[in-house]
């Protein structure tokens, strides 16, 4: 084959072949995607603080372990209400002339997906403690600690944001104060929320659905209170229900949990709580996560029957009544 003995023909053919394929499978699809897609109308732009926070997120390589993509498969349903769309990423443009666009979709999920973490885990106190050292609140965590986002001060000023770090992590009577960078990063994490689709738009479906195991009477399957607690409550109130002194209250032996005021109990789960100065603010976990009465009842029953707690069992019907009432109160 004399053609292949000619270096000009051989190498230019190989180059053309490769470049041609590159244009077809990479350049044209990339161009068409960046031209065609626009952010959703309901998606807010990043605030200044959140934008700086995103820079800190990028600089520390958080994308190495955290994805930001809800795939259109059923197992990803826990990370968002709907599968991610091209429009969700359309607002990302080049960071600056020197640095490329950061869609931060990621390829590795050593830690949880963060697409919707602003809804799932918005608590300021929790996030700051967790950033200072994740193992304070999640002892199994392998996430790095970010102490360089915090300062240690003997007597913090009025405007300083003090982080409720347990004494074991401190020397003497110093306090841990969040730097501006920590607060920017917090703002970014809180801003990570899936935008609502415009009205009349049908969300793409989640594929590979699991066969739902129907209960005996064809009713909805019973929710697993332990798993729900682990996924939504445990990071603050801890697996042993003892909370974290100075940061998150215990549920073990708590009068709210074991008492009779179901309305207050359901209200805290659905709409959050900020009545006790010594503890952090609880976000509206139930509303954020769109808990059903089944799920709330399962969590309550789990909390009332664990760690030595002995409270009355509740039924989803009782809970539903209260949830409906709460909805009326806060339109």
């Amino acid at each position: 084959m004399s053609m292949l003995d000619n270096h000009k023909i051989l190498f230019s053919n190989a180059a053309l072949f490769f470049v041609g394929l590159t244009i077809m499978v990479a350049v044209i699809p990339a161009l068409s995607n960046q031209e065609r897609n626009r952010p959703l109308p309901g998606a807010p732009a990043l605030s200044r603080e959140a934008r700086i926070g995103k820079g800190i997120y990028i600089a520390n390589g958080c994308v190495a372990c955290h994805t930001q993509q809800v795939r259109n498969i059923d197992m990803d349903r826990i990370w968002g209400d709907r599968p991610g769309l091209a429009a969700d990423y359309a607002a990302n443009v080049r960071t600056d002339f020197w640095r490329n666009t950061a869609t931060l979709m990621g390829t590795e999920r050593t830690g949880p997906d963060l697409t919707n973490v602003g809804v799932r885990q918005p608590g300021k106190d929790w996030n700051l403690v967790h950033l200072f050292n994740p193992r304070i609140v999640v002892k199994e965590s392998v996430m790095p600690a970010y102490p360089w986002l915090f300062e240690r001060k003997k007597d913090p000023g009025k405007s300083d944001v003090i982080v409720n770090v347990p004494a074991a992590y401190l020397n003497g009577d110093e306090k841990v104060v969040a730097t501006k960078d920590a607060l920017y990063l917090l703002a970014y994490l809180q801003s990570l929320k899936q935008a609502a689709l415009p009205q009349n738009t049908v969300s793409p479906e989640f594929l590979y659905k699991k066969e739902l195991k129907k209960a005996a009477g064809g009713e909805a399957p019973a929710a697993d209170g332990k798993a729900l607690y682990a996924a939504n409550c445990q990071t603050c109130h801890q697996e042993n229900g003892e909370g974290l002194p100075g940061a998150f209250p215990p549920l073990k032996g708590s009068p709210v949990v074991t008492g009779d005021d179901l309305e207050k109990y359901v209200g805290i789960i659905m709409d959050g709580y900020d009545a006790r100065a010594e503890y952090g603010v609880m976000p509206a976990v139930g509303t954020n996560m769109s808990f059903t009465e089944n799920e709330v009842a399962a969590i309550i029953n789990h909390e009332r029957s664990s760690w030595g707690n002995q409270g009355k069992k509740v039924t989803p019907e009782e809970v539903k009544k209260i949830i409906d009432l709460l909805k009326l109160k806060t339109p």
Partner: peptide, 24 residues
């Protein structure tokens, strides 16, 4: 040849907004 092509496509600092970045 291919490595040079790849680096050029991926690094020319004037494009890849949104999902364009992901595809590249």
């Amino acid at each position: 040849i291919f490595a040079i092509t790849i680096v050029l496509v991926a690094y020319i600092p004037i494009w890849q907004n949104g999902l364009g970045e992901t595809i590249i």
